[in-house]
Design a protein around this nucleic acid. Structure first.
Length: 616
RNA sequence: GGCUUUGUAGCUCAACUGGAUAGAGCACUUGACUACGAAUCAAGAGGUUACAGGUUCGACUCCUGUCAAGGUCACCA
């Protein structure tokens, strides 16, 4: 039982004894005492004033006195307004810390026997990964690690959007204008090569559109269809899709290709698998650079038909209904949503159909209890509908479905727009942060006695830590501004700051081992400085924090925690001497404390997908 | 327009889910290294928590309204 629990029980007993009033221990409000007041924990006594019929100050005084005599851990107390500040005796902090030193893997919850699947990244195969994917990937990866630490068995997955009209566009452009270019022949990374032809299609299409706009046919159409208050430009913009479908030569070629693909045309399928394999090689490189991997991939091309079976089952059970034109819908008005199409009138599947099918497939493969989708907040409604639909279909895991929704990443100049070329590409970004880390390392020129390979790895870890921490520290649901200059900062609230604290803490421990410090003397330590107590306190919070982060699917909690812990350790470093302390038991105690801190920092950062360097 | 998310220091973010005088970092000013590594620490300045009401012992947090920014309302994904 930890201190807060003991206090809660004590307060419950005190209130019963003093005021003959029952309170639930969960309702006893206990917070950490603010720095400006004396004490460790604070009990808020306002809620008892009704039952006690006394002033909060008096209640605090009475409960405080009772706790001081009845609870051994309470050494002292003071009352400010309705706040009862309790001080825990040093001997209990010391005893508590000795227990912490013995814990094998602090923060690792015992296995709970449950499986959770985490879907993240899920790119389209027609362009490279960009900054938006980076946030997605970091969130997904981190969430997977945190759930694992919280006791779940985790399966990391993605749904690869490898089919559809967009992919056909890049295929068509390559076929028409590519002249056989390959990643090998051009030296262009596969995903960028596919992206190049996707962009090329768009350009050629726009050129074609522009010429067409000057035809008589188009001008007549404009006259007929343009709305009042609409500029010509706005009209043509809104008309683009119709043009693509009804008039465009390139458009009909692309659509024809899609039909052939669905018909399993060998030539088209061949081209498709070739170009996709280029893209996968490119993605793999990016994932590797980011330090992430997946346990299982699902491809849309394999799952897009799967949903149909479930739809027809659902039709029989009247979960869905059919309109006269043959299209299938679900009525979600009773859940305060709309009617939603789940199957087109021509019998082909839509996005929703696929997601229903994929969920089912995954359940058959893994029988997961929970499923987390890491997808941007523009799809909030889609997932609301999907989850409600799965519930009505009676999926056993329906209650465990969760959409980890996150806000878009903006640049200081505004939104990222692929058409305006303001997209920050993932590979380039990673390269850039590593370069900044290298520049800093060179300036300092401090790592010695290491091979070039070691130094390269250290630089890589520092650069990535800066980037990853900058993104992951922000609460997922908030839109965030990504300023490239700040992302590579290595001072203050940053990844490298935490790495630095880690290197210090670990370094001290290693030196102590080298110097053959007798660590068992730590048991005799009895003074305990405030900074030390603060550290013990913070470390003790870690396991509960991991659970909270898992329950709320929020890695930013871990990030902010790690920063706080690193900060507290840096403070200790400056305030007291560790290896040069006067008493042998003080040295031993602080070395043990440093070791625990380094382990906790390393573990916390690992949950964020950030690796620690040995030296910096 | 309906629904929905966000709005906190000049900038980037916190605030233990309703608790004390709203905290950090960056930038700015000042101080601390022939070192258990200064990628650090200490101090200063910086706020009507978008605005207006309400709920109560107590509101950045909950409710109502207004304003601003984003998202979404496709037989697109």
């Amino acid at each position: 039982m930890n201190f807060t629990e003991k206090i809660a029980v004590g307060v419950k007993a005190a209130v019963a004894k003093l005021y003959d009033h029952e309170v639930n221990t969960e309702n006893v409000m206990i917070t950490n005492t603010r720095k400006d007041f004396a004490g460790d924990y604070t009990v808020v006594v306002f809620p008892f004033s009704k039952a006690a019929k006394k002033k909060p100050v008096d209640i605090g005084q009475e409960i405080g006195e009772t706790l001081k005599t009845d609870l051994d851990i309470v050494a002292d107390f003071n009352v400010v307004n309705g706040f009862l500040n309790l001080s825990i005796g040093n001997e209990f902090w010391l005893k508590f810390s000795q227990e912490l030193f013995k814990v094998k893997h602090l923060g690792q919850a015992p296995a709970n026997g449950k499986k959770v699947m985490v879907e993240f990244s899920s790119p389209n195969t027609n362009k490279p990964l960009h900054l938006g994917h980076v946030r997605n990937i970091l969130l997904g990866w981190s969430c997977a690690q945190i759930l694992n630490r919280a006791g779940y068995k985790v399966i990391k997955t993605q749904i690869v959007n490898d089919r559809g009209i967009a992919i056909c566009k890049s295929m068509l452009a390559w076929q028409k204008f590519g002249e056989g270019e390959t990643p090998t022949s051009s030296g262009i990374k596969g995903d960028f090569l596919a992206g190049k032809y996707y962009v090329m299609f768009e350009k050629k299409f726009q050129a074609e559109y522009k010429i067409w706009k000057e035809t008589k046919e188009a001008k007549a159409l404009l006259k007929e269809k343009i709305k009042k208050d609409q500029t010509e430009d706005a009209f043509w913009k809104s008309y683009k899709n119709t043009y693509f479908n009804d008039f465009s030569g390139l458009g009909s070629e692309a659509k024809e290709m899609l039909l052939k693909w669905e018909d399993n045309d060998p030539a088209v399928r061949q081209l498709w698998s070739t170009m996709n394999s280029w893209v996968y090689d490119g993605f793999e490189e990016t994932y590797k650079a980011m330090g992430v991997d997946f346990d299982k991939l699902y491809y849309e091309s394999n799952t897009y038909l799967e949903g149909k079976r479930i739809i027809s089952d659902g039709l029989k059970k009247s979960v869905f209904y059919k309109k006269e034109d043959g299209s299938v819908w679900i009525d979600l008005e009773s859940a305060k949503m709309d009617h939603k199409l789940v199957l087109r009138s021509d019998g082909t599947s839509v996005y929703m159909t696929q997601d229903i099918g994929t969920a089912q497939l995954r359940s058959e493969d893994y029988g997961m209890d929970k499923m987390v989708y890491v997808v941007g907040d523009e799809q909030d409604y889609h997932f609301k509908v999907l989850f409600e639909t799965m519930k009505r279909l009676g999926a056993p895991y329906a209650e465990g479905l969760h959409h980890l929704s996150y806000g878009m990443v903006d640049l200081p100049t505004g939104k990222m727009k692929s058409r305006e070329g303001t997209v920050v590409d993932a590979d380039e970004l990673i390269k850039e942060v590593v370069e900044v880390a290298r520049k800093n390392m060179v300036e300092r020129n401090e790592v010695t006695g290491k091979t070039v390979n070691d130094i390269e790895e250290i630089i890589r870890r520092i650069g990535l830590a800066a980037l990853k921490f900058f993104i992951i520290k922000v609460n997922p649901k908030k839109r965030m501004v990504f300023n490239p200059n700040e992302a590579v900062d290595i001072q203050g609230q940053t990844g490298p700051y935490i790495q630095y604290a880690f290197v210090r803490a670990k370094g001290v421990y290693e030196k102590a081992i080298q110097d053959k410090v007798n660590l068992s003397l730590a048991d005799n330590y009895s003074t305990l400085e405030p900074v030390e107590k603060e550290l013990i306190f913070q470390i003790s919070q870690y396991p509960a924090l991991v659970i909270t982060a898992a329950e709320s699917y929020d890695p930013s909690l871990i990030a902010n925690y790690c920063y706080g812990l690193a900060k507290a350790f840096n403070k200790l470093w400056h305030e007291v001497s560790i290896l040069n302390a006067e008493q042998a038991e003080t040295i031993a105690y602080r070395v043990k404390l440093s070791k625990l801190i380094s382990e906790t920092l390393k573990d916390g950062m690992k949950l964020l997908g950030i690796e620690m360097p040995d030296r910096m």
